[in-house]
Design a protein around this nucleic acid. Structure first.
Lengths: 121, 121
DNA sequence: TCCTGATACCTTGTTAGGCATAGTATCATG
DNA sequence: CATGATACTATGCCTAACAAGGTATCAGGA
């Protein structure tokens, strides 16, 4: 039976990389949840985005895992924000994840016979 | 509550890249299922592997999607093998997928501040 | 002779990560 | 005073990859 071709899904490519992205953004300074959404959009030039339903539970999990810590930033006349800071454990986790990501990506490039330095056609 | 850190999972990184890998391998010539497993292991130097429960259903789906075609290769005194060949549609799909993969990967590198040309530490 | 491991294919049900959807609330702007 | 942006949270769904199990043939060793 003929079926429609599976769409290529960014969500699937994102899978397994969300923690890495979060840690990488937080490495450059404490940020609150909503700000991370903005920062990711900015750095990726709108190619990538987290859905709120992805981001917030993930932040909570990562705090449970002690990769990040949070504190409420309450200011007069402003909505309270929960600001997240990367921990030492988080830094180490980031290093490990970057290594794995890099190794995986280079293996992918090798297998498919693509050169990472060439511009996309 | 403290939780154990999520392990970095190759399965998750693989997600969304399996069709791309399959098509890339079949692009270099018709191959039977079990042979694809071997070829992937060889090209990735054992970093990547498909589980059989991933491979076979995927091959069937991709045949339904007309990205590949199969025929039984029956030989005297040998177990029958189902040999898969990439179609024109599959070739085009591969191109699209490679473009998306490349774009995604380069975006990842940019966001995490890693240089794809540097060796992993 | 029988057992193990490799080859070769297939199926059923589970898992878990990302998401759709919905809800709450504040503030600026027109 | 309605809308959109900001800011956080919770519940339940979807689906790709996998664990586990099955069938069968053949070679090689104990």
């Amino acid at each position: 039976m003929k079926k429609r071709t599976q769409d290529i899904s960014i969500s699937d490519l994102l899978r397994g990389n969300t923690r890495t992205l979060l840690l990488a953004i937080l490495k450059d300074g404490p940020t609150h949840g909503y700000g991370i959404l903005y920062e990711l959009e900015r750095r990726s030039e709108k190619m990538l985005e987290f859905k709120q339903a992805t981001l917030y539970p993930l932040l909570h999990d990562m705090e449970d895992e002690e990769l990040i810590v949070s504190e409420w930033d309450v200011r007069e006349g402003e909505r309270p924000r929960r600001v997240y800071t990367i921990t030492d454990k988080g830094q180490k986790e980031l290093e490990k994840r970057l290594e794995t990501f890099h190794e995986f990506s280079m293996t992918m490039y090798r297998i498919v016979g693509l050169n990472p330095n060439e511009r996309a056609r």
